[in-house]
Design a protein around this nucleic acid. Structure first.
Ligand SMILES: [Zn+2]
Ligand SMILES: [Zn+2]
Ligand SMILES: [Zn+2]
Ligand SMILES: [Zn+2]
Lengths: 127, 127
DNA sequence: TCACTTATTGCAACAATGTTGCGTTAAAGT
DNA sequence: ACTTTAACGCAACATTGTTGCAATAAGTGA
């Protein structure tokens, strides 16, 4: 059950670490030099999430994006409660560090946060 | 270009108004008495969103849910910034009224809020 | 270094969700 | 009742992600 290190895996991990933004399967495929099978990419990403290396965001475009857990998350894998911004112009999804405050009725137990704001990022809002 | 009132349309609108929760295409199909074509349902829902009657939430299960705009939204169709809670046990998505506070870097223009917390609702967390 | 175990891969097939095209139906206006 | 065309139903398609299974290769130990 222990993980094995493979080229595909390290390539994707390096890519995610290098990128500042969250990447979709599509974006990963585009940025990889080597060819990796669709299914393999999905399986690697799911493994990363399972292992707490990355977190998954389901954006309002209906797609999954993956990002390396930022510093603030490192100590606590459940700390994925930061928000995410998807720019509809440049199609990038980025993690936005910082607290999100809200109130919830009593008795509700939150397991996962999936906060997506979409619009135009700083680069694109200037047109 | 003006809207026409049809049975399918009013049935779905009544259903959404009656329900307290946000409904997916699937949930709507299940709760409707009459048979309405899959595509028609999707088109009706998209029309509702377009017309500002309802708002669309893309949940972290990757599906679209639709809810009638609550009172707080009525005066301003852009006020869909309330959060949503999806219970992974009973598979319901509900609007949670109230403010969500966050901060965003300068220059970012938000068009749409898609805030989903998932976990167990009050009914289900007591097991 | 070589053999062994099994995690990982690649391919095909499938599943789920949502959209588009198009001919038909029926709501609204005259 | 007639006309216009929004809305519908059906089929086909598109996209995104998962599952099954045989082949490959990473880790382990002799
Ligand atoms: Zn942008
Ligand atoms: Zn993030
Ligand atoms: Zn519940
Ligand atoms: Zn809502």
């Amino acid at each position: 059950m222990s993980r094995r290190q493979t080229k595909s895996q390290t390539a994707i991990l390096q890519l995610l670490k290098k990128e500042q933004v969250a990447l979709s399967h599509d974006g990963i495929t585009a940025k990889l030099e080597q060819e990796i099978d669709r299914v393999t990419i999905y399986r690697i990403l799911n493994r990363f999430v399972e292992d707490g290396l990355a977190h998954r965001i389901v954006a309002d475009d209906g797609r999954q994006y993956f990002a390396i857990c930022p510093e603030e998350c490192s100590h606590d894998h459940k700390a994925h409660d930061h928000l995410h911004f998807r720019c509809v112009s440049c199609d990038r999804v980025e993690c936005v560090p910082g607290e999100v405050e809200y109130s919830l009725p009593a008795g509700y137990k939150v397991d996962n946060h999936n906060i997506i704001l979409s619009g135009n990022c700083n680069d694109c809002s200037g047109k």
